[in-house]
Computed example of a mutant assay.
Amino acid sequence: MNKIVQRVLYWFFPRRCVLCGDVVAIGDDLCDLCRSNPRIGSSPCDKCGKDKSRCECKNAHNTPDYERIVAPFYYEGNVIKAVHRFKFSSRSELAKGMGDEMAKTVIREYGGIKFDYITFVPMSEKRQKRRGYNQSLELARRISDKIGVPLLDAFYKAYENPPQRNQSARMRRANIFGAFDVYDGLNVEGKTFLIVDDVKTTGSTLSECAAVLDSYGAKKCFCVSFAIR
């Protein structure tokens, strides 16, 4: 495309960073801040998903019910702004760039695993209506498209629990216990799942989802998030 035309289009329809949505230069997909976001390396800790140099699982008292958790980024720097815009500022289009990064991580870390389904952390009807969408579903949908594994809406919220934000690890586990169930008539027995969420903090939410699937006979549950605290 002619460079003058490109610049005119950029003036009226500027390119946006695929992660945080900030304006970027022509030809760029990421802004400088997102490009410098700390990334999680290959072969991280199975339990916490962090690089082994950051892992503190030896001090943990609980073993998660999932097999493993992976993510492309730490919840630091511009990733925090990206997640906040995605979740709280109606920027659902950011699911595309975030989901692509997650899909790359899934391919790299889970390449030898045959998933039967991708599923996602559910949201209550009340909260989803207020937000307009379930961010975990949007990410799961993008990952499903990228890696060719069918998407399954497996969970519903059994009750409206308080948000997990700003709660201690112990309170998070108590708060989420029994909050999810599998839809009636859904057969998950013997299936291997990839469970998607936007941010993993203590892992309580993902672990509870894995525990529910396990109770209905699922074979194994693996997890992926966009970022890990």
Rank of each mutant, 00 (worst) to 15 (best):
L206E: 04
D197W: 00
M98Y: 07
G112N: 15
I118Q: 05
R16C: 11
P14D: 02
T201K: 12
E109R: 09
C55Y: 00
Y10K: 14
R15S: 02
R35K: 10
I26G: 09
K3R: 12
F226M: 13
D214L: 08
D46K: 11
N175T: 11
I118E: 01
G21I: 05
E125Q: 01
T119M: 10
A211F: 03
R54G: 00
R39N: 06
W11D: 02
E138C: 13
G190K: 14
Q6P: 03
P163R: 03
L186N: 08
E160H: 12
R131F: 01
N175M: 01
R16E: 09
N134V: 07
S53A: 06
K96Q: 09
S144V: 07
S92Q: 14
E67R: 14
R131T: 00
D65C: 13
P14F: 08
A211R: 15
R165P: 03
E109M: 12
F177Q: 15
N161I: 02
M123W: 11
R85G: 14
C221T: 10
K58L: 00
K58R: 07
Q135P: 13
Y74E: 07
N59S: 13
H84A: 02
S36F: 11
R170Y: 14
L186P: 08
I113M: 04
M123T: 04
A82S: 11
R85D: 05
C48P: 02
C221G: 04
D32K: 15
E208P: 15
V121W: 13
Y216L: 14
A211K: 13
E138M: 13
A25W: 11
V212S: 07
N37D: 03
L152S: 07
S144Q: 01
T201D: 06
F180Q: 02
N78K: 10
K219S: 14
I80S: 04
V5W: 14
R141G: 08
G132H: 03
S43W: 13
V196Q: 03
I195E: 06
N187I: 11
F226L: 15
N187C: 05
C223N: 03
C57R: 12
Y10E: 15
R130D: 05
A169V: 12
R173F: 05
T201P: 15
C57Q: 10
L94F: 08
S204T: 13
D153M: 09
F120D: 02
F88R: 02
F73Y: 15
S124Q: 10
R85Y: 10
N166T: 08
A71N: 09
Q135R: 03
I143P: 03
S53L: 04
D145V: 06
R127M: 02
F180M: 09
K96E: 05
Y183G: 04
R173N: 08
A179K: 09
R35A: 04
T105F: 08
A179H: 12
F86V: 00
R165Q: 13
K114Y: 14
A227G: 02
R85A: 03
H84I: 05
M98P: 08
V23A: 10
I228T: 04
I147E: 10
A103H: 11
I176F: 02
K104F: 04
S136W: 10
R142Q: 07
K81D: 15
